[in-house]
Nucleic acid binder design. Structure first.
Lengths: 176, 176
DNA sequence: TGCGTTGTCATACGGGTGGATAATTCGTGC
DNA sequence: GCACGAATTATCCACCCGTATGACAACGCA
């Protein structure tokens, strides 16, 4: 009479959280927020729905954790590209821009993710805060590179150029 | 005992359809597709839910009509900008690009719309077809303007430049 | 002014699904 | 082996979705 129970392995808290977060991001990227239900996330992560609330107080918290993770990935990718860049200021900027337009930064999945999360960002203040933090750190990176260029330009001008440059990058990023 | 019935006015078929479509677009822009429920659309349009199915066979049909309308708006705006443009090829291109980056083409609502509809576009083939038609007509417009420039460039080059130019425009558009 | 058409309202239904929970089981480290 | 807690299972409840239906009233026309 014993119903056969699904076999399972115990995992570390970190690996489980990671799997759940990744599953959530994948689902949002593919089908928008409405596709990222607790059941779908659990299935994708290879666990049962109940487990989600073992690691996250609510689905909302999981969503926020997922977005935090996404921002971190983007930030890390940018920073890594910069570390491997050449020494000349001009070349540094050029290679940084190039890196921002090639894999793994550019990825169709990321576009879907961004689009899917846009509405959520607008409504949830905490999400918005996470987002702005990441956005500013990227733009500041860009501004630093531009300020290091061998040319005559005040900080005001550099800031303005950084914003414009960022705009162009985002545009090319969209087209991929 | 008679429940007081909400007073109403009879409208033309066109104006009702228009109101429903606009309501649907607004809701998608604000809260994503999941916010555009039959009830919400009806409320926003100032009617009761039942009326939707008086004008559209199903909600899906309304959604498609709404998207068709959006594409038409974008196309019209582009064409209008071009009609008012100067004669010189270089100036024409410049003013067209400028128009693509100012109101009413640029609009935070449109960005939300685009983000919300991205997933829908991916899954619904008919939607995708509507989308590509609009996208191509815009890019062809751009390609025509570029081909008219006073310079030495083959058709292949013009096409390539049009795609790149479109990418940059989209990027600036995103930043608004 | 009265009548018929039909645009519009009101309400209900059947159901799918969403997030949450509580108790149970069994893998695992000691 | 024993105990702890990770993970499963089963279920809850509520909400909201899209659809269907029938009554009512606004407007055009005679």
């Amino acid at each position: 009479m014993s119903t056969d129970r699904r076999p399972y392995r115990r995992e570390t808290e970190e690996s489980r959280r990671e799997a759940l977060i990744e599953a959530a991001l994948d689902l949002v990227a593919e089908g928008g927020p409405q596709a990222a239900t607790v059941r779908a996330i659990a299935t994708r992560a290879g666990v049962t729905p109940g487990l989600i609330r073992h690691y996250f107080a609510s689905k909302e918290e999981l969503t926020r954790a997922a977005y935090r993770r996404l921002v971190q990935i983007l930030t890390d990718d940018s920073a890594r590209a910069l570390r491997a860049a050449p020494a000349s200021p001009t070349d540094r900027l050029a290679s940084f821009v190039a890196a921002s337009l090639s894999p793994p930064v550019v990825d169709p999945m990321r576009l879907g993710l961004w689009a899917g999360l846009l509405n959520t960002l607008r409504s949830d203040p905490e999400m918005r805060q996470i987002h702005e933090q990441g956005y500013h750190s990227y733009r500041d990176l860009l501004e630093g590179l531009i300020a290091a260029l061998p040319r005559d330009a005040g900080p005001e001008q550099c800031r303005h150029d950084a914003i414009a440059c960022n705009a162009v990058i985002d545009g090319l990023w969209l087209e991929s």
